[in-house]
Design a protein around this nucleic acid. Structure first.
Lengths: 289, 289
DNA sequence: ATCGAATTGGATATTTTCTTCTTTTGTACT
DNA sequence: AGTACAAAAGAAGAAAATATCCAATTCGAT
């Protein structure tokens, strides 16, 4: 259980709880639930208070704090207190109900997405983002991998990087990803996309890629997931916490936002970017009416 | 020394210290000095740490906290921690400049995207949206077409609709789109995606589709474009007007938002939607670690 | 069913906060 | 200057909170 650093004032702790939630044990999840449901109260509570409210032993509360990367309960509370500053007003009326009409649904969804943008920003780790940009600029070749919904995100990233003139491939076929990873060498960079971070078809190739000496960046919603464990650099986006996720796929949304940030930073650091964008735009101009 | 309440997050505590400074005793002033000179450290310190640093007794530290209106040292630290949160300097202009650092770029991009969401909402035509939902629900088969960047959006829509259990295909190869459109018949529905609305590879097949008796919905940024002219129903998203679009691809963003709205509405009207979502989610569960 | 590993919470140790009370300092008045 | 009194400060110990250790339990895989 590696302590990450003595940094207080890291990314938003309340969001971080969600992003490691799936890796928590049953008792720790209870603690997480109590904290998330009423952080204002949790900040003033003692270990004992919290453990009683959650119906778990005190030890579990401490363990929970440690898993979040804090040295102890105290640091944890301090960080949550900081999250409470400027906390967006509660979400009571953003919930979409069955009776809502079309425009209401559109409005509520827009508000929810707005919040997702903020949350994504709150989770940004500047160092990691910088590292990702530098590694991508330095890489000889970039391989974007993803399957399922994340496979489509992979195609999107490929498209962006290609238009910036980078040497990039994207794959979303599990077999081809595996084969591709087997052939990587030093100087190559893997960009693995997996919301859960636990997709075998992605984790195994990423491990292989590392073994072959390639660098690994991953985009995920779960910080303590296998893929994050194997990656050199983790880009974290909020995990879903929207109401009725009926085909809305909120993580797709946050992924796209993160990729927008990433590719914008890339283009700023590449002096050939605008030229490449222009060339590519021009190349399809005669395909228009 | 009336304790006011359990309110944390009152006025700025560091400023409060200055404002009562003159009424502090000599020892308390020493404490105040230490805190003010290095609040970051003070927040992590214990009573003993602080008393040693200030060269006073522990009791004086406690008395100092009480004079500020806190119940104890603990509450005091919590409040100082909140003061240390650096509020994002409200950036006056959202334009990204070459000199902006990573976090500033991220912030500005987030603000720009927020605006895009609002703009997308403003452009929503409720009648068209309703019509689109109804037609999609009524269609026997849905064919999503798109090339280039919009081709990837097409895949995304396909994924969503598939997960909702709809009968849907997506194509992004110009030739295959053309052939697919040639075979359509009444009862089929084309969902054409084209930011410009002028892509020949999309416009021609859409025309063909209409001729074959299929319905046509299009998602575009240009209302008076060829594809919009041929469509029965037009879903409009804002056209790019962002600053330096260095790989940011803002229309992708608004398209995704619109599709989120659309598919949410669809899932609300389909009683089989949640079942389909569950089934599809379950189908890949054993692919996880 | 059995083993081993992971999880959990109670008992206990340690640290930290807070209170009490004595000592010290400062001030006013004779 | 000396005395009396009040305010201030800190040492010591009590109380409370946090953290550790370890035994009991659950869980998962043969």
């Amino acid at each position: 259980m590696a302590r990450v650093g003595p940094k207080l004032q890291q990314a938003n702790t309340l969001l971080m709880i969600s992003s490691i939630y799936s890796s928590l044990t049953k008792a720790e999840k209870k603690v997480a639930d109590v904290v998330k449901s009423n952080p204002e109260e949790a900040v003033l509570a003692t270990v004992t208070d919290l453990s009683e409210q959650a119906g778990v032993g005190e030890t579990s509360v401490i363990r929970f704090c440690r898993k979040l990367g804090f040295r102890g309960f105290h640091e944890f509370k301090l960080s949550v207190a900081q999250d409470l500053v400027d906390r967006p007003p509660s979400v009571s009326n953003m919930e979409i109900g069955d009776e809502d009409d079309v425009i209401t649904v559109a409005r509520k969804l827009t508000m929810q997405h707005e919040r997702l943008l903020k949350n994504t920003l709150d989770l940004v780790n500047v160092d990691n983002l910088k590292a990702a940009v530098d590694k991508m600029l330095a890489a000889e070749r970039i391989f974007v991998y993803g399957v399922g919904s994340s496979g489509i995100t992979a195609l999107d990233l490929h498209y962006r990087l290609m238009r910036l003139g980078m040497n990039v491939e994207a794959h979303r076929d599990a077999h081809i990803i595996a084969m591709s990873a087997a052939l990587l060498k030093k100087g190559d960079l893997v960009f693995g996309i997996s919301t859960s971070g636990s997709t075998r078809d992605l984790v195994d190739p990423v491990r292989q890629a590392k073994k072959n000496g390639a660098g690994v960046i991953c985009l995920t919603s779960h910080l303590r997931s296998p893929i994050a464990a194997h990656a050199d650099t983790v880009l974290l986006v909020p995990s879903r916490e929207m109401s009725r996720e009926g085909g809305a796929l909120s993580t797709k949304f946050t992924q796209i936002h993160m990729l927008n940030i990433l590719t914008t930073l890339l283009s700023m650091k590449m002096d050939t970017a605008s030229e490449a964008l222009e060339k590519t735009a021009l190349s399809v101009a005669d395909k228009l009416y």
